[in-house]
């Protein structure tokens, strides 16, 4: 049995009495693309934030490629890892934010290069060369020295993805990758995500683009009120949803979302 890229066990998070995450269990195998769908407020973003320890879960365990992240069991005792230990694993878990959070005072190239130099300690010359290759592969050859405010929404999205890829992650989390875009660009980004998936990257995508879920994802997980209510192979879940809440959700959402054709 191969080690899953991501293993979430019993993850729980409460905010002021509201349970945002209610004992989440989720495994993502290497190279798998899992889409997380659900109504607003169901906890999708909170889950992603907990997976990079931007929020500290109250309970539960996370394992990245078999290594404990955030919390570890030593002997019989549960420890919270030190800040250093957490920071050391963070590059392995890429997160592309919904509003991208690109660094406006740095050029596109620098946005991508800064992480590997500062965090991974690589030599600048090598890092810059790799960053150039990465940006070129994403279609940004002529945008490398531009600053985020000079780029279009789609270009910024690609810089954000490049920044994450530069850290050589084992898996990438995407928080609503298409919500900030004009409709005509959505297809472009979904195509990009499918290309990344084709390279064998493990991906966990929070999205409301059900078409993407159907077309590219291997598995869909449906969340409602902090729990993963139903999960299974993408097409099966979409064609035959069992849980009534999922059926209701799909009923509301499906008619208007385009399908990403192969």
């Amino acid at each position: 049995m191969t080690i899953p890229a991501l293993k979430v066990s019993g993850l729980t998070k409460r905010f002021r009495g509201v349970t945002a995450l209610d004992s989440i269990y989720l495994d993502v195998a290497r190279g798998e693309v899992v889409t997380l769908i659900g109504p607003s407020g169901c906890g999708k973003s909170t889950l992603l934030r907990c997976l990079t320890w931007l929020e500290e879960p109250d309970d539960g365990f996370i394992e990245v490629g078999g290594r404990p992240f955030g919390r570890a069991v030593v002997g019989q005792v549960v420890h919270r890892q030190t800040r250093r230990e957490i920071d050391a694993l963070r590059p392995k878990i890429g997160l592309v934010f919904q509003n991208l959070n690109l660094w406006p005072h740095l050029s596109a190239l620098e946005n991508v290069a800064r992480g590997p130099v500062v965090v991974l300690g690589r030599k600048r010359a090598a890092v810059e060369a790799q960053a150039r290759t990465l940006l070129a592969r994403l279609g940004l050859e002529r945008q490398m020295d531009k600053h985020p405010h000079e780029l279009s929404g789609g270009q910024r999205q690609r810089v954000a993805i490049a920044r994450t890829l530069a850290m050589e992650p084992e898996l990438i989390l995407f928080d609503e990758p298409t919500s900030a875009l004009d409709p005509e660009l959505v297809g472009e980004v979904l195509g990009l995500l499918r290309e990344i998936a084709a390279t064998g990257m493990t991906m966990l995508v929070v999205t409301h683009e059900i078409g993407f879920a159907g077309g590219v994802a291997d598995r869909i997980a449906f969340m409602d009120q902090g729990r993963i209510v139903e999960t299974g192979p993408a097409r099966a879940v979409l064609d035959n949803p069992t849980d009534p809440r999922l059926r209701a959700f799909l009923g509301r959402v499906l008619p208007s979302s385009p399908r990403v054709t192969a």
């Binding site: 990079t52 931007l54 963070r90 590059p91 920044r163 850290m167």
Partner: peptide
């Protein structure tokens, strides 16, 4: 988000 995106790629708070 500026601070968070820096931390999310593994920078220490000081970095």
């Amino acid at each position: 988000g500026q601070f968070e995106s820096a931390r999310a790629i593994g920078m220490s708070p000081l970095q």
